[in-house]
Design a protein around this nucleic acid. Structure first.
Lengths: 338, 338
DNA sequence: CTGAAAGCGCTTACAG
DNA sequence: CTGAAAGCGCTTACAG
């Protein structure tokens, strides 16, 4: 690798001058600047990121926390897509991304220690156990932090609008003439809570009462869990006409169960999902679901984080709610036209 | 952040001594070492990765090339899973991973330039356009390189054994009594080539001749492409009894098409996929497919790359072929028992 | 307009 | 067994 010293020798100027020319300082003559810039591109010079970081206390590197819990992390389409768009947007703004790890080699580090070790400029918490003390330590540190789907006072959170999403989905199902609507929700979390509240509010608004046994707690992204719960719902004396699953994978489980019990979708039982993953639209019938705009979520998170890094004084720590989109598939039957 | 100087002041020794004690040099008295180690953990000292990298020419950071082409990159379950296990294994060995980008901010860099800028210790090419001059430049550089599913002379390649996978899948289908087997293969690549060759060889071994019109070139991971081609196959005067899709997503498209045409799976038409993605086993019937062991591929790639980085003289540039596993789902009918 | 010097946090031959 | 010194590649007050 060519260094700034090679350039200074080649151009017959000092390293100070080279550095200033390359960094756009004004007190360099036009001729010298041109000479240096040309030489730099001729020998393919690039500054050494580590040396620069050491001096400038700025790495242009963002730490991304992406713990691989069960059914989470990179193996989850929702988060993987968010990461993809985050990475693309960050690159455009000149930032690289590096994963934050818990233990790195023999050194046991906390997440925060890892960040300090690498001198990240900011932190993106894409998916994590939000109650984990190490995560809290990170959030409460002086690092600029952006999270997904979980609000903290000390960080910017980008959230898919779960209240609105659930509202649209539920209202659509009601509009199709359904009254007996069961809801398999995910394990408790703020996301789950907001969806449940929204579901209940829409029911109330429409004057519908949902019996206790129509609510089941399942596991996000677990087809097995949904299958088991679907059986219990469908074997009720008065089974629902529509089942809302916690997500599209779970919805797939519900559909399989129904078919195994000899029921046709949507003729005998309607099913709805949540997330809008690609496979949900490759099914027959296409799944009625709420599409979360993962491209937008990732890009927005990157934008907010970099703003927070570069202009902390003018970037407020607000939550950003992103629109969702109702996808009307063929899995919810219209009962009005019967 | 506490520095080595803080430690030296606190312990009343020189920075040299601190550094040596922390790095396990032998010429330090036991007492001094203990004093320093204790102080270090008390104030939560961690060396600065950038400073260290500058001096040692070693960053403990691996560059990962993961271009987001259509249907590729993080949005592809196959690659996302490989990355997940790569990242886990690399962390265990003490390496972080950072994505290699094409353009970083305003600076247009080639992949290689980005690697030099960040001083990566090695490069993992997970998915990329292998004919791209920039990729070739990277492979031919002096960086240790590991690739997936594509062999280069100058790098280690970890490959899923496509010949063996296609052999098992095809033989299984033949064993079920099928003779009229259509194959929608992906666009041309070495992977596609090897599968095609293997398919043809098994046919020959079994004395089966496949008519030209049973071969169609589709697009990997495109349900639409597969749907269109499946129609053409199923409308042939003499349609196949089984269709092999290039991958599981495409297989889903084939299944939908068949159902839309009023055919039952597997009673009227058999379908097989390739990859073994999670959703393929959440379908009814479960898809008969070849499962690629993404956990193994990612972990093996990390292991090989780190060996190459740390022991270049004893790590040979061989290709590593990983076993695949036939998943007998319910989507291929047994014609022998009719 | 240019350059010598100090310094970012670390490692490591070398001297004592 | 310990420490002073040089140096990794860069930036930036400061002097001229």
């Amino acid at each position: 690798m060519a260094t700034i010293k090679d350039l200074s020798l080649r151009c017959g100027v000092s390293v100070s001058t080279v550095s200033k020319a390359l960094n756009g300082y004004q007190d360099i003559s036009e001729a010298t600047r041109e000479l240096i810039i040309r030489a730099a591109s001729e020998i393919g010079y690039f500054p050494d990121a580590n040396a620069r970081a050491l001096k400038m206390k700025k790495t242009y590197n963002i730490g991304v926390l992406f713990s691989t819990l069960s059914n989470h992390g990179l193996r989850n389409e929702y988060f993987a897509h968010i990461l993809a768009s985050f990475k693309e947007r960050a690159a455009k703004r000149g930032y690289d991304i590096t994963f934050i790890e818990h233990n790195i080699g023999n050194r046991k580090m906390t997440y925060l220690e890892h960040c300090r070790y690498r001198n990240f400029d900011g932190v993106f918490i894409a998916c994590a156990e939000f109650g984990d003390p190490e995560v809290l330590e990170l959030v409460n540190s002086d690092y600029p932090v952006v999270t997904i789907d979980h609000a903290f006072n000390e960080a910017i959170s980008v959230l898919s609008d779960n209240v609105e999403g659930m509202r649209q989905l539920t209202q659509h199902i009601i509009d199709q003439g359904h009254r007996k609507i069961a809801y398999i929700h995910g394990t408790k979390s703020s996301v789950t809570h907001n969806r449940l509240v929204s579901f209940n509010n829409i029911m109330k608004e429409n004057g519908i009462t949902i019996p206790e046994e129509y609510f089941k707690e399942g596991i996000y992204r677990s087809a097995e869990s949904a299958e088991e719960l679907a059986v219990r719902l469908l074997e009720l004396p008065e089974p629902p006409t529509c089942i809302i699953a916690p997500d599209d994978y779970a919805a797939l489980g519900v559909m399989n169960t129904a078919r195994r019990m000899g029921l046709k979708i949507p003729d005998d039982i309607s099913v709805a999902g949540y997330d809008g993953i690609s496979v949900s639209q490759a099914l027959e019938p296409k799944l009625t679901t709420i599409k979360q705009d993962t491209d937008k979520i990732g890009a927005e998170a990157a934008k907010q984080l970099i703003n927070l890094i570069e202009s902390p004084m003018t970037t407020s720590l607000d939550n950003i709610y992103l629109k969702v989109q109702l996808v009307k598939g063929g899995s919810v039957r219209n009962l009005n036209t019967i």
